[in-house]
């Protein structure tokens, strides 16, 4: 949850400004060597928290180190009047510009808040359309529904189990490969079978391993999954009989899946007795 905060509220320029404010540094005379080192230290911490958002920070750190290096060398650049150019100048100008836009963004936010105190005719319908639109775009409905269906199945499973959660890691009961074979066997008998039927009366570990096996088989185009409208179950059907019937061995599960794929009870949840 902190990751979100980092991405939303702080960028690489903000971090520089943070050092400047904290140490009451004169923005026109930044002690680049020290700031560059501190910046790097901070970026390393950030890598621990949020790898995704750290790229832009690394770029800024590189820029600082570049400036630090140029400060150590005898100046070669000169402006139109022949005076030596401070390697920090461009960075400072950028920072100042950024500060102005940050402030402008705040002012605009305030304006928007004030504006939102007023309501106009047509607001309701226009907003409703927009809300619906944005949902459509951001959610991949089919995958989402699939996971939702799994969630409901697991939830139903949980209801049966009223015992206190036991925190222990039980040995793995079912592997994804095993479950792939199970599903294939099953589909040789019936061309279509519902997920609930496949896992009826089985443990959580079995349910999850089976679910992953289905995803893997679907990825390999052996199956087709159909999600019902209410998404509390879905059905599995053989897509290509030839592939299932043949003696051709099932494709290896990719390494990523294999690691997570060997499913025991999720740690910290109820253990299997």
């Amino acid at each position: 949850m902190y990751r979100v905060e980092l991405e939303q509220f702080e960028g690489p320029m903000d971090l520089l400004l943070f050092f400047i404010k904290r140490d009451e540094i004169d923005i026109y005379d930044i002690p680049i060597a020290r700031i560059a080192d501190e910046y790097l230290t901070y970026v390393r911490v950030m890598e621990e928290i949020d790898l995704d958002g750290v790229g832009d920070f690394i770029y800024m750190a590189a820029l600082l180190i570049n400036i630090k290096a140029r400060m150590l060398l005898p100046s070669q650049d000169a402006d139109e009047e022949g005076e030596a150019v401070d390697p920090r100048r461009e960075l400072v100008e950028r920072l100042l510009e950024y500060v102005r836009f940050k402030e402008a963004a705040d002012q605009l936010s305030t304006r928007r808040e004030r504006r939102r105190e007023h309501f106009v005719r047509g607001d309701a319908s226009a907003d409703r359309e927009r809300v619906e639109e944005s949902h459509e775009v951001e959610v991949d409905a089919s995958v989402f529904e699939l996971v939702e269906a799994l969630g409901r199945v697991l939830e139903a499973d949980e209801d049966d189990d009223e015992s206190e959660p036991i925190h222990e890691v039980a040995p793995l009961e079912h592997t994804v490969e095993e479950q792939q074979r199970y599903v294939v066997e099953r589909l040789r008998r019936d061309s279509q079978v519902s997920f609930r039927t496949l896992i009826r009366g089985e443990s959580r570990g079995f349910v999850i391993a089976t679910f992953l096996a289905l995803l893997e088989l679907t990825r390999q185009q052996h199956l087709r999954l159909r999600v019902a409208e209410r998404a509390s179950d879905f059905s599995v059907e053989a897509r290509d009989d030839a592939a299932l019937q043949s003696d051709r061995p099932l494709q290896q599960v990719p390494p990523g899946l294999q690691g997570d794929g060997a499913v025991g009870p999720p740690s910290g949840r109820s253990g299997e007795e």
Binding site: F9, A104, A105, S109, F119, D123, R128
Partner: peptide, 21 residues
């Protein structure tokens, strides 16, 4: 309009919008 309240724009959206504006 209780259901239709738009959320606030994130800071990155506001900054971007400010620069464009």
């Amino acid at each position: 309009y209780v259901e239709e309240q738009e959320t606030n724009l994130s800071r990155s959206l506001m900054e971007t919008l400010a620069v464009i504006a």
